[in-house]
């Protein structure tokens, strides 16, 4: 087993997401729609939506975005990514959108997500919410709403585990698998 460290428990995750929801309201964006980036951005977007609903009594709409068709590294990845369904059940034109993802790292996923979103229409604005910002950006992209900011080594992996995908909610920091013995 690789060395791993617990970064967030379920309670800490919920607290962070609640704080993000409060900040969204504070920024006056309660009308914004959420778009989760597949895979783990989607349950996180729903989580954020639930917390927003607790405050505003109104559940924001949530869309699902698969960014694989917008990737810039198709020829470099060893395994070809599986294409998942994109489902944006509202008009993007003139909407305020909060993109939701689990980890902000190089920024390339968000670049792809922005390209994808813009193919659906011309949003009024796009903000970014992530559970963990682990640094190492390769593109000029920043998140407005961040659950946890940590410094990492480049070869470490931040693993956000979610009930819907992994059976439990927690965030782990793992050594890179190549260092496994």
């Amino acid at each position: 087993m690789a060395e791993q460290k617990l970064l967030m428990t379920e309670a800490q995750m919920d607290k962070a997401i609640h704080a993000m929801a409060e900040k969204v309201i504070e920024d006056g964006l309660s009308e914004a729609v959420l778009v989760g980036i597949k895979t783990r951005g989607v349950p996180l977007a729903h989580w954020l939506a639930r917390r927003l609903a607790q405050i505003t009594r109104k559940t924001p709409k949530v869309g699902e975005l698969d960014i694989n068709l917008y990737r810039d590294d198709l020829s470099e990845v060893a395994e070809q990514p599986i294409i998942h369904k994109t489902d944006i059940p509202f008009s993007v034109d003139n909407s305020g959108i909060i993109l939701v993802d689990d980890v902000l790292y190089t920024g390339r996923t968000i670049r792809a997500a922005l390209d994808a979103l813009i193919d659906f229409g011309r949003p009024k604005f796009v903000r970014l919410a992530v559970l963990v910002d682990r640094g190492w950006r390769e593109l000029p992209i920043q998140a407005e709403y961040v659950g946890l900011t940590i410094k990492t080594k480049i070869d470490e992996v931040v693993k956000v585990m979610l009930e819907e995908c992994d059976g439990k909610n927690e965030v782990l920091l793992k050594e890179h698998f190549s260092k496994r013995t």
Binding site: R71, I83, H84, K85, T86, A116
Partner: peptide, 20 residues
């Protein structure tokens, strides 16, 4: 078939094109 079904949506957009 899974990939095809997940790509169907592209043909229903107003901009029917992805850059992959």
């Amino acid at each position: 078939l899974k990939t095809a079904q997940n790509m169907e949506e592209i043909s229903e957009r107003s901009v029917k094109k992805v850059p992959i």
